[in-house]
Amino acid sequence: MNFDTNLIVSIMPELARAFGVTLLTWGFGVIGAVILGFMVAVGRRYGGAWLNYPLWLCVEVIRGTPFLIQLFLLYYGGPFVGISLDPIPAGLLGLTVYGAAYFSEIFRAGFEAVPPGHVEAAECVGLNRPQIIRRIMIPEMTMLVLPASVNMAIILLKETAVLSIITVPELTLVISAIGSQQYAFVESLFLLALFYWGLVELSGRLGRFMEVRLSKYRFVTT
């Protein structure tokens, strides 16, 4: 095997763009999933039975089916019901909805871990529901849900590789395309696996570092 520096330089821009797409879908996917998941968790807690059961069903369906099937349904089935999306928006939407189902369960557990006494005390001093959520629930549960949330964010990073199947031009798709053009498929996939591994390890370390730094804000001791 000869080592070709020009080749590596020539594919750099393409790799950088692909890495950008991976980071973009991951970042926005996680942010969207956290927001949507939080809304689902709040809806299930305060929305009454009419909101709770449909949302429960949605969450269970999303958690019980493979991500790939959901993506196919959205990307190939969408145009039949008037949702024609390009690969990147479709992947982003799919990742957001998929992640939201898992985040909503994390937040639900977080809500349940807030001592009822704190909420009752807040009601007694006259805080209304949005104030209770903002002033009591969110601050108290943030530390509790942080480890599970970091874990979920890392799972979503790995799921971005699946987006290559619906032709989102992210790292896995671009690197396997370059690899097969250059007859170095195994080598490039191996480097790709190592790269993801490093990224996951790094994110995990960062998450644990954050947990340690933020642990002084832990309100609830269980």
């Binding site: 590789a161 195994v186 390890e201």
Partner: peptide
């Protein structure tokens, strides 16, 4: 454990699928 939990399963599958014949 760290590697197989860290790399996406899709990449692992593609790698093993192409590595064995290689």
């Amino acid at each position: 454990v760290s590697f197989f939990r860290g790399a996406p399963l899709l990449v692992q599958l593609l790698l093993i699928y192409n590595l064995l014949p290689a």
